[in-house]
Amino acid sequence: MRRGEILIALFLIVVSVAAWISSAGFVAETAMVRTLSPAFYPRLVVGGIIFCALLMLVRARHARTREATVAWGQWYKVPLAAGAMFLQVFSFEELGVFPSAWISLVLLMWITRVRLRMNLLISTGFLVFVYLFFVLLLQLKFPTEFLPTLLGRD
């Protein structure tokens, strides 16, 4: 019994069945092309996943050796980090890319336990680099306005 593999196999089967069901809603938009149904190939792939997941289930159940269970380390930090990432993703258009990136960087380095002073220094230094390289040198455009919707300028 390998619990990790059983878990992932079951998860894959659930997702695959959902994908199979949703593939019933694929509608061809043109009569110009005569080809296989758009759902044919995704179903082939999904079928393959289900087959392989079942095979994995069977193997995991009959496995004689108990593989070392997945080491999770400080797993609780992962959702925190993901949160910090999503914070930037959903805030940078409103806060401007620099303040929002700064906040996320500081948060991420707080999660990785960088000392606060270093943390603030590196975050700011990094943004200076981003400005020099991406904005000045490569002339890329980023949203830089602060609260554009709130301040009525969109």
């Binding site: 894959l12 994908a19 949703s22 593939s23 694929f26 509608v27 061809a28 938009e29 043109t30 092309v33 080809t35 758009p38 759902a39 190939y41 995704p42 792939v45 999904v46 393959g48 996943i49 392989c52 997941a53 994995m56």
Partner: peptide, 23 residues
């Protein structure tokens, strides 16, 4: 299995041959 996940990810979007929206 990993390859099949990749193949499934690649089907996301408008089907190039029929225009059908997939996933």
């Amino acid at each position: 299995i990993a390859a099949l996940i990749g193949l499934l990810l690649k089907t996301v979007g408008s089907d190039p041959l029929t225009g059908a929206f997939r996933f």
